[in-house]
């Protein structure tokens, strides 16, 4: 069920520790984290603010290195203390506040990846992008600039921009934060559709526990800083999922389980006087 039939995109995180500014402030952000993500899994990470979720994602994406341990993708080590990962189109990030280029139209954004990688000519890329935009119901805004479309649209375009590439894992850092509940539920449906269609591994960070269970195949709860893996909860709700899931008994049990794990950490974080980190 969680495997989705794909063979690429398995990530293995082994004993990863990350210390920011080792000589100066010495912030221990990740402490000996280990996690296996099988190919094609929808893996959701939850945890209190500032616990190191983004740090972990950035290490996989290649935006910064790690202090010890190893991260490998499909059995190939990509990130070690000696050598940080190179950012590449096999691991594409959907950023917290969005990173669509405002100086390009929706279409130009979506074809960006294939064109700069030299994988397709511009015409081919336009065709591929048109197909993906069509599948996502976005063809009508292809020639709009980013500032002209709503935040919900932007998220979908950003996913389209990622999916048009030949990627192995989609990294999403609280993509639906600061959205209202209605928009969010539309976004969830859309992402579930994309997931069911594309068979890609998804690494999804969120604060929202309902979202975590509704979307994920597994929910990984992290401790407050220094971030460790506290608990991994299997979400054994069959796919394709729809809103009915939210009314089911199993969903409520799972939610209770995650809530207990997270609340304990949130309280600790609060008592440690952690400031709210974005």
């Amino acid at each position: 069920m969680s495997n989705n039939g794909s063979t690429v995109g398995s990530v293995s995180i082994r004993n990863v520790t990350k210390i920011f500014d080792p000589e100066g402030a010495h912030v221990l952000a990740l402490d000996n984290c280990s996690l296996e993500i099988p190919a094609g899994e929808f893996c959701v990470i939850v945890g209190p603010s500032g616990c190191g979720k983004t740090t972990l994602l950035n290490a996989i994406a290649g935006f910064h290195g790690i202090s010890s341990g190893e991260i490998s993708l499909d059995g190939v080590p990509i990130c070690t203390p000696e050598k940080m990962a190179e950012p590449g189109a096999d691991r594409i990030v959907v950023f917290q506040n969005g990173a669509l280029f405002p100086w390009y139209t929706v279409m130009e954004n979506v074809i960006y990846g294939p064109v700069v990688q030299g994988k397709m000519t511009e015409a081919e890329a336009r065709q591929a992008a048109g197909k993906i935009l069509g599948e996502m119901g976005l063809q009508g805004i292809a020639n709009c600039y980013i500032n002209e479309i709503s935040s919900g649209m932007r998220r979908r375009v950003e996913i389209a921009r990622a999916m048009v590439n030949d990627l192995k894992i989609l990294l999403m850092d609280e993509p639906y934060r600061a959205m209202d509940a209605l928009t969010k539920s539309v976004m969830h449906k859309h992402l579930l559709d994309v997931y069911d269609r594309a068979h890609k591994t998804i690494f999804f960070i969120t604060h929202d526990l309902e979202e975590a269970i509704y979307l994920g195949s597994r929910v990984v709860v992290m401790t407050t800083r220094p971030g460790r893996i506290k608990k991994v909860i299997d979400v054994d709700i069959p796919r394709p999922r729809d809103l009915q899931v939210l009314a089911s008994e199993r969903y409520r049990e799972l939610k209770m389980e995650v809530l207990e794990a997270v609340q304990e950490e949130a309280r600790k974080a609060f008592e440690a006087g952690e400031r709210e980190f974005a």
């Binding site: 950012p87 990173a99 280029f101 100086w103 990846g113 700069v116 990688q117």
Partner: peptide, 28 residues
């Protein structure tokens, strides 16, 4: 914003792409 550089690198840009497709239009 640093995030545009990150996004560009994620999508497989080479340095010249970052220069002409991020730095130049972003600074315009």
């Amino acid at each position: 914003d640093e995030v545009y550089f990150r996004a560009a690198r994620c999508l497989g840009s080479k340095p010249r792409h970052i220069f002409f497709r991020v730095v130049v239009p972003g600074a315009l």
